[in-house]
Design a protein around this nucleic acid. Structure first.
Lengths: 199, 199
DNA sequence: GTGTAAACTCGAACCGGTTCGATATTTTTC
DNA sequence: GAAAAATATCGAACCGGTTCGAGTTTACAC
């Protein structure tokens, strides 16, 4: 069992993914053909379909991996002593920077994650990881008395997540043009959540 | 000037659009080929490109028209006496219902409007119309003393808009499954904005 | 080893969106 | 009203993602 076949398969898969991501970043997703990828990976273009269902899948699989590492990076640098407001800013700015690092990748990823053709389990997993982190932040904040007790933490997560998505839309539609502007906007919005707007 | 040619052109354009939208709703966007549309409109498929830049454009042009009428409908039924919270709920639930009326249309439209390949002027116009309406709601609320004075109305618009987008994402990823749930969620989130979460 | 089944590979073909280029029609000009 | 310019139409071809099917390689049973 295992053996030669499995090894080669792993190797080929890796070759395809690396070739694809390299070409996508260099020439853009749409300008890279399956032919190009196959050539760069040293195989026939039909062979790719033995490893990935479609062109999109190569990209989405890569996003998946990156998302997981990004989450882990956040968890590592999570500092307990920091006020919850700053924890949230750090968390979402990290996410934001990560998603928009490559303009086109981010666009494609967001389209697929927020408005998918069909809801996927993979996406649910990511959401779960995300909620777990925020849940932790909110619980701590509650203990410390930074936020009101008995708030619905699920809704709270949704609230901050929505603002994060709104900022991303602002970025991609051209209303926000630098990370400084984004952070400024984020602080303003988060402040509104914290203190309310009622007279 | 004008004359036969112009008339026919208008007629053909209409025929294409009607055929396309009819087929899109019946069979779905991707399952409808340019061939299908051309046949239904009684022309050759290449001719379509004399009227629309691409398949997407037929759809997006239609969305454009619908968006405008939806805005007008809201402006008509805007009631002055209603508290600003209820005005916002009405506004966004109207938008929400309109966008999600056809599941696939909404998905495609949102992908394109929030994360466009290139920022377009058309989109800016819509945003402007949207901000104008909200601006009016906030100004009135301010006069009435319903919200604090000196709030940044632009940021406020962005805030509510983000929550609306977040709810849409929740709809398309399967966390919200009925308009009742959406409205309940919307009320909860808007309430958070109004009253804050700080202890 | 040998036979058999499963898995891998890839050239050929398919399919649908888009472009090209030649033809047909209308408008303009004189 | 005929020639020239502008524009509309559409069949043929292109291009790129995807599927088919036939040939090859590997794994396993005996």
């Amino acid at each position: 069992m295992g053996g030669i076949r499995e090894q080669k398969k792993q190797q080929t898969r890796r070759a395809i993914e690396e070739a694809a991501i390299c070409l996508f970043s260099r020439k853009g997703f749409e300008s890279t053909s399956m032919q190009d990828i196959a050539a760069a990976a040293g195989i026939g273009k039909t062979t790719i379909y033995g490893y990935f269902r479609a062109k999109d899948d190569i990209f989405l699989h890569y996003c998946d991996e990156r998302l997981v590492t990004a989450f882990n990076r956040f968890r590592e640098q999570q500092a307990e002593g920091v006020p919850f407001f700053e924890q949230l800013i750090t968390f979402f700015m990290l996410k934001f920077g990560f998603v928009t690092e490559n303009h086109e990748f981010g666009r494609l990823m967001l389209r697929e994650m927020l408005f998918p053709k069909v809801a996927s389990d993979k996406a649910r997993e990511h959401d779960q990881r995300y909620f777990d982190i925020l849940q932790g932040v909110f619980s701590l904040a509650e203990e410390r008395g930074e936020i009101a007790p008995n708030l619905d933490h699920f809704m709270l997560s949704g609230h901050f997540f929505s603002l994060y998505v709104g900022l991303l839309a602002g970025w991609y539609t051209g209303y926000l043009n630098s990370l400084e502007e984004v952070e400024k906007g984020m602080r303003g919005l988060f402040h509104q959540v914290c203190h309310g707007i009622v007279a």
